[in-house]
Design a protein around this nucleic acid. Sequence first.
RNA 1: GGCCCGUUCGUCUAUCGGUUAGGACAUCGGGUUUUCAUCCCGGAAAGAGGGGUUCGAUUCCCCUACGGGCUACCA
Length: 511
Amino acid sequence: MKNIRVRFAPSPTGPLHIGGVRTALYNYLLAKKHQGAFVLRIEDTDRTRYVEGAEEYIKRALEWFGMSPDEGVDQGGAYGPYRQSDRKEIYLKYVDDLVAAGRAYIAFDTPEEIQAMREREQNKGVHSPKYDASTRMTMRNSLTLSAGEVTGLQQQGTPYVVRLLVEPGRTVEIEDLVRGSVRFDTTELDDKVLLKGDGMPTYHLANIVDDHLMEITHVIRGEEWLSSTAHHVLLYEAFGWKDSMPSFAHLPLILKPSGKGKLSKRDGAKFGFPVFPLAWDAGEGEEAYLGFKEAGFLPDAVINFLAFLGWNPGGEREIFTLSELVEVFDPAHIVKSGARFDYEKALWFNQQHIMRLPDDALLEWLRPGMSAYYTDWSEEQLKRVIPLMKERIKTRNEFYENTRFFFSEDWPYEEKMIRKKWKEDSPAHLQNLLAGLKQIDPFEAAACEATVKTFISENGLSFGAIMPLLRIGLTGTLKGPDLFQTMEILGRERTIARLERALEAFPRIKG
RNA sequence: GGCCCGUUCGUCUAUCGGUUAGGACAUCGGGUUUUCAUCCCGGAAAGAGGGGUUCGAUUCCCCUACGGGCUACCA
């Protein structure tokens, strides 16, 4: 089998959508699984839709996920250039060949003329008029004009496009890796524009030429391309490249979490979760979007979540890192139907990945954001807090938000619980317990636990009478990691200071 | 409208003619725990509808319904 070469070919028209990330992922997985090449090609043939910064965004997103291309605009390669706007001359040559071979033709029709044709056809009862075999001979093109007229118009600088000559009455069959055999009747196909009036190729031309020249073996792309694949096959035929045509795999769409239709960028704001990998800030006046990264997700968790949206390895295991996915990926298991985006499940994947990540990796992940939350924190403390928190956070932001009491003295008491738990004899108990805690040396979790537990049993108390008060006094809240571990990390000084503060504050709160 | 694709628990999915239709998220109940989380146990929950083919259909075929994509000098 030939070496596998796949490409991810986004258009730099904005931030990379999560569906695009999944397309990139499946391409990446197939390439890596077979030691093939993962190519990044930028499809910027539509100048009117070009967005500043989008290409950069795409590269940063791929890098964040760890899916760096083997070849592409930045890494170069033997098949460059990898940006279609830099390949303009190449397409010109191939489109000339097609015209010379009679497989394509030059058309001078203005938008108004095409519109007029459509109206004519509709009046004749044709539902969806097309520029095709039934109409092309009524238009102004190199099929209806003499050779002299054509060169004359060209010399005058009359704008023109090049169209693919589609022969009607044929059946084009494609063998899709996920959908099996799909057939199209060429009578339904229009004479697609190959070269636009501005001299740039359309997607269809550029795609086929590039995939062929770059020796792409598998085209993995979204379902929205399935319909035009018939044209693409016709193009491969016209060029005489049918024998080396790549395999196709058309991916199901990612749908809105509720309601109808595919997931859109607006859904993020609407439902309160990210639909982009990274934040996108287009500048003033433009809409900004939150990314999974900023929402506190691990790249592997997002990958894992996305991988399972429309694919599964067949077994019951669900947690995989990117490199583990490479091992088990098989395009034969790609699902045919669209998948609903489920943010709850994404959170679950993130939690699972956080729990499985070694502490030192979590440290690297958490460190950069600390200073945005806390002014006075030490790496030493962070290191000790991580093992206590890793099983109780779903996102990185949750870590920061739920560890205030470790890194700051600025956190509120859950006053409602104090009112409920602060009893007649509570002051005396807390007072005595505090005296006991002061004796502990070294101030370690095991010793704290022994002291507290002994105190409780010797006084015939219940855990419920003491622990909640202790916990609120030390952390402000009733939920959190092991209290004795927490005490050890806080240290004797802060533990005692906080309990003394509680002794003063609780009666006041109780009122 | 036309062409193409799709349709299993609320959601993501397994099943490649014979299963008590399995798992996961979410949900509900219970256990563990000083709380929360983790973890463990359990419950509820599905083959769009109608025809065929077959000894037997979730699985194969057809029709209908519904959903989606395409129908641009956008990708």
